[in-house]
Design a protein around this nucleic acid. Structure first.
Length: 661
RNA sequence: GCCACAGUAGCUCAGGGGUAGAGCACUCGAUUCGUAAUCGAGCGGUCGUGGGUUCAAUUCCCACCUGUGGCUCCA
């Protein structure tokens, strides 16, 4: 503020009105000129798109917006303040705790601490209680701008903060601190005006987290928490977490008897008869879709080191491979290391390249699409394993396409339609991400220009919106990723289309062109499901176990009301089975209510109840899963026909129960 | 791999230094039922594994295994 008469800054309000203020005016004073009610509701402001708190001096002009609870950006501000309040409470109860980072995240916030004794669940309760005190004490968040030297003074006892301060060396970024009562943090802000704004919050869990995400650095103790403006929102959030837990594929998988794990095979699933049926149905579906334009091949699971050296896996991926001991190599006197000269395959690409290389190919036969469903093994670190979503043994619907460069655009278009159509069948919606050349890459810039151009042109030709992920491509080529959204709004990265100019070089792949000369093909890596295991886990959670009829392991359960009609019930069951429907007859001597309940719990899409009336009329009383008592009595023929239609159409929901066609 | 937590009957879970209990499931008997749990009886566990402390360990301690939540990684 050295200038004698600084120029006024012009702030433009959303309604077009303007305010002219002297630099250094507090944001809250600007808000006050708009209205007292707005000042009451204000949590922060946005100037030219940058969120700042009310006590921040205005330093530049531009679009000026007041951020209230309604603003989507407000929650992050509240949660960030929540993180400070958490740290305030932790510091009071555990003065030895060194503070790390404490940001707002998608669903809440966390704070990392370095402590000699890790936190226990009881500690969490104590911290939460202490936070409520800090909230009640209503400390204002006081911003201060300090020099590097002053900051070093303030955080002299916090080595993690001192390390953070090093990042400011030589930069002209303003160093600011925020103080709420007894606690001061190095922080850019913004914050809500005082601690009392944090009303509805909950500490959720503790976890270890490496300092700065680096596994070579020390492990800090992270506390996860969440916060909302309204009590109902917090309750809803916690309820959603509960609901998500209920549809957790590990829980549903046990309830519906789909798969299980044994300690004897960590990271490898056992599929039960019902689960195996589910798997086979999915696989059959994929096979059917791929029958026409893809070539399925089955290849070895175990290969010699030579292949992995050629593919580059031996050098870059060996840690993750299950190496296999070669007896003869050992007997030749090789070292223990040398005797491990084979490996279970962790990926299919080398198999496909090997096969493509083994034959002469004409330009006329491209694109050539090889698909393989073989079992893959990756030796994941134990801590990474989790249900079906992260396993050591899995299968992919893995495809490698060998094509001419001029075919890239049309091929990518074809693959995109293929993949999106696949997700549609399950009611999954996909978001597309286009990832471009990364820093670490191979190939000339001209090649990348061509590859990215072709991929992008194909992407745009579909007219679908997509997001850019600059620099996130594979080292060998750009890619399109498919982020799939499930029924409760979670995103999963599943499908991918990747251009690869590296593999053809490594494997010396060739085709004979029109000119009778050898040419290099391009390779496209394509996955749709990711892995069967993970995809089935997603489907289980997406449908909460209530699969559409075509996928259901058990499609119809026939329930005879009494033994008198058992014969007819068995006849109906046999007839449905003969028509290719997965039907069973529940002839247990339990009550009808009991058996209906069991059928509902097992999420069987249709129950066909049969009493004397139905037996006499050649009908069934159709009960649709989840529809309660609403039922329709129809002839066996029309029930069967309708089922077959629904299965053939791979309908997501049943059409009205057994309506006569 | 790292940090924390957990492991008791097939499942969900209670208990706790003196070798265990419920509900459901399962088996048997009775019941033959009209749309989400019929009644009764019975079977079932060396309390994850191995060591240690103790007169005594499922319980306390240590190690390991497996799982869960994270970190890292990732289909």
């Amino acid at each position: 503020m050295s200038a004698a008469a600084p120029a006024l800054l012009v702030l433009t309000l959303p309604d077009g009105a303007t305010r002219e203020v002297a630099p250094g005016t507090l944001a809250r004073d600007v808000v006050a000129t708009i209205g007292p009610r707005l000042l009451q509701a204000a949590l922060a402001v946005s100037i030219d798109g940058a969120v700042q708190d009310l006590m921040t001096p205005v330093r530049s002009g531009g679009a000026f917006q007041v951020i209230t609870e309604k603003d989507p950006r407000a929650l992050a501000v509240l949660r960030h303040s929540g993180a400070h309040i958490l740290a305030t409470a932790v510091r009071r109860l555990r003065p030895d705790a060194k503070i790390g980072f404490g940001p707002a995240i998608d669903d809440g916030f966390y704070y990392d601490f370095e402590v000699t004794k890790p936190f226990t669940p009881e500690d969490l309760e104590a911290f939460e209680a202490e936070m409520r005190k800090v909230v009640a004490e209503k400390y204002p968040f006081v911003r201060a701008e300090v020099s590097q030297a002053e900051a070093r003074q303030v955080f002299a006892d916090d080595p993690l903060k001192l390390e953070r301060l090093e990042d400011f060396e030589g930069s002209d970024e303003v160093i600011s601190t925020y103080t709420d009562g007894p606690f001061t943090d190095l922080c850019r802000g913004p914050h809500v005006p005082d601690t009392s704004y944090l009303k509805h919050f909950k500490l959720l869990s503790t976890a270890g987290a490496y300092w700065r995400g680096d596994e070579r650095r020390q492990m800090l103790q992270r506390i996860y928490a969440t916060a909302f403006f309204r009590k109902e929102e917090l309750e809803q959030h916690l309820h959603r977490m509960e609901e998500a837990k209920k549809r957790d594929h590990r829980v549903v998988g046990r309830q519906l008897d789909l798969f299980q794990f044994f300690p004897h095979a960590p990271g490898a699933a056992f599929w039960t008869p019902r689960g195996t049926q589910l798997w086979l149905t999915l696989e059959e579906f994929i096979r059917e879709r791929q029958r026409e334009r893809f070539l399925e091949i089955k290849t070895p699971l175990l290969y010699t080191k030579k292949l992995w050296e050629q593919s580059g896996h031996w050098g870059k991926y060996k840690e993750n491979m299950f190496l296999v001991w070669d007896k003869e190599e050992a007997e030749r006197g090789g070292s223990a290391e040398d005797s491990l000269s084979m490996s279970l395959k962790p990926m299919n690409c080398p198999s496909h390249h090997l096969y493509f290389h083994a034959h002469k190919h004409s330009y006329r036969e491209l694109p050539k699409r090889y698909v393989t469903f073989d079992v893959l093994h990756r030796n994941e670190i134990s801590g990474a394993l989790s249900g079906l979503t992260r396993v050591r043994q899995f299968s992919q619907d893995d495809c490698h396409i060998y094509l001419r460069e001029d075919q890239i655009a049309s091929e990518v278009k074809f693959l995109m339609d293929f993949i999106l159509g696949y997700y549609d069948t399950f009611g999954l919606t996909a978001k597309l991400k286009f990832a471009t050349r990364p820093e670490q890459r191979i190939g000339s810039d001209e090649l990348w220009d061509r590859a990215e151009g072709a991929l992008r042109a194909a992407l745009e030709s579909t007219g679908r919106p997509y997001e850019m992920k600059e620099g996130d491509g594979a080292f060998y080529g750009p890619k399109i990723d498919f982020d799939v959204m499930d029924s409760i709004g979670r995103a999963w990265q599943l499908g991918t289309i990747q251009l690869d100019y590296n593999a053809p070089e490594r494997f010396d792949l060739e085709y004979t062109g029109e000119d009778n000369a050898a040419h290099r093909p391009v390779v496209i890596h394509r996955a749709v499901s990711g892995s069967f295991e993970r995809f089935l886990a997603i489907l289980i959670e997406h449908f909460a176990g209530a699969f559409p009829v075509w996928l259901s392991p058990e499609q119809v359960r026939v329930l005879p009301i009494s033994d008198e009609v058992l014969g007819y019930a068995q006849e109906v069951t046999a007839r449905l089975r003969a028509a290719g429907i997965r039907a069973s007859c529940d002839d247990r001597s339990d009550t009808l209510n009991y058996r209906i309940r069991d059928g509902e719990l097992m999420k069987v899409p249709y129950m066909a109840v049969i009493g004397k009336r139905e037996a006499e009329a050649g009908q069934v009383a159709v009960r649709v899963r989840g529809a309660g008592k609403k039922q329709e009595v129809v002839s066996v023929e029309s029930f069967q026909a309708r089922l077959l239609d629904e299965i053939r159409a791979r309908a997501l929901t049943p059409s009205s129960a057994g309506a006569e066609a």
